[in-house]
Simulated assay, not measured.
Amino acid sequence: MTEFPAPVVALAGSTDPAAPLVVLLHGRGSDEREIVTLAGHLPDGPAYAAVRAPIAEGGGYAWFTNRGIGRPVAESLAETMAWFRTWLDEVVPAGRPVLLVGFSGGAAFAGGLLLQDPSRYAGAAVLYGTLPFDAGLAVTPGLLEGAHAFVAQGDEDHVIPRELLDRTWDHLHGDSGATTRSRRDPGGHGITRETLDELGDWISERLALGR
């Protein structure tokens, strides 16, 4: 079992310990300081926690080792998800809503967490990334019945393999059973202002916030 460092977390938004928590998960090679800036463009009301991934890589951090872009090694993903759940279950009491927002590699991690335990989360946003297919997690029809997802993709995204983007889009809109809101951009591998606006609306709806 790999020994990971204690989580490093950047906080923003509400300091009320009962406030809904939005967990921000950065992309491969990035860190918590970059993605926490999204909180300034998202709804007031929740607490925001940007967590640093536990694997050092490329001057930043990664959520899992991979066998190709968007293709996690199953054993690595299982270990990092267990590490994350240990942290989450320690800091978030039962009954406090938790919503996941992941970008790129963080999107695959958020998707993995949702697939592992759909009832734990108020929803998961998969932004410009893929679900972790063929990585030791069940991706069966109806598994996400009752769960909520937000998926955003760029039509000119050449970072994540198109086959994985298409498979993610089709699965979340179809066999998964999830209630899915989605947005397609004409651009590439980056979060647009329009996507942030729609993501903010989705967060408000999922957490019953007034906007």
Rank of each mutant, 00 (worst) to 15 (best):
A10S: 13
A10H: 05
A12D: 13
G13R: 08
S14E: 06
L21H: 03
L21R: 11
L21I: 11
V22G: 14
L24R: 11
L24A: 11
L25R: 14
L25N: 06
L25E: 10
H26D: 09
G27R: 13
S30I: 01
S30R: 09
D31F: 12
R33T: 15
V36R: 07
V36T: 11
A39I: 11
L42F: 13
P46H: 06
Y48A: 14
Y48D: 12
Y48M: 13
A50R: 03
A50N: 02
V51D: 05
V51K: 05
V51H: 01
R52F: 09
E57V: 04
G59A: 07
G59L: 07
G60A: 09
Y61W: 15
N66F: 00
G68K: 04
G70L: 04
R71Q: 14
P72N: 01
V73M: 09
A74D: 00
L77A: 04
L77S: 00
L77P: 00
A78P: 02
T80N: 08
M81R: 13
W83E: 13
R85Q: 13
V91M: 04
A94G: 13
G95H: 03
P97C: 06
P97A: 04
V98Q: 05
L99Q: 07
G102C: 03
G102S: 12
F103D: 03
G105E: 08
A107P: 07
F109E: 01
A110V: 08
A110C: 11
G111I: 01
G112I: 08
G112R: 02
L113D: 10
L113G: 07
D117E: 15
P118C: 05
S119W: 03
G123D: 08
A125N: 06
V126I: 15
L127V: 04
G129D: 01
G129Y: 01
L131V: 10
P132G: 07
F133D: 04
G136L: 03
L137N: 08
V139E: 08
V139A: 10
V139R: 00
V139W: 00
T140L: 13
T140Y: 05
P141D: 14
L143K: 14
L144V: 08
E145G: 12
E145C: 10
A147N: 11
A149C: 15
F150R: 09
F150L: 07
Q153T: 09
G154M: 07
D155Q: 15
H158C: 02
H158I: 05
I160L: 02
L164G: 03
L165Q: 15
D170G: 01
H173V: 03
H173S: 05
H173F: 01
D175A: 15
T180W: 06
T180V: 15
S182C: 01
D185I: 00
D185L: 04
D185T: 12
D185V: 00
G187I: 04
G187C: 05
H189G: 00
T192K: 10
T192H: 06
T195R: 01
T195N: 06
L196T: 03
E198H: 11
E198W: 01
G200V: 10
G200R: 07
G200T: 07
D201C: 05
D201V: 08
W202A: 10
I203H: 07
S204T: 14
E205A: 15
E205D: 15
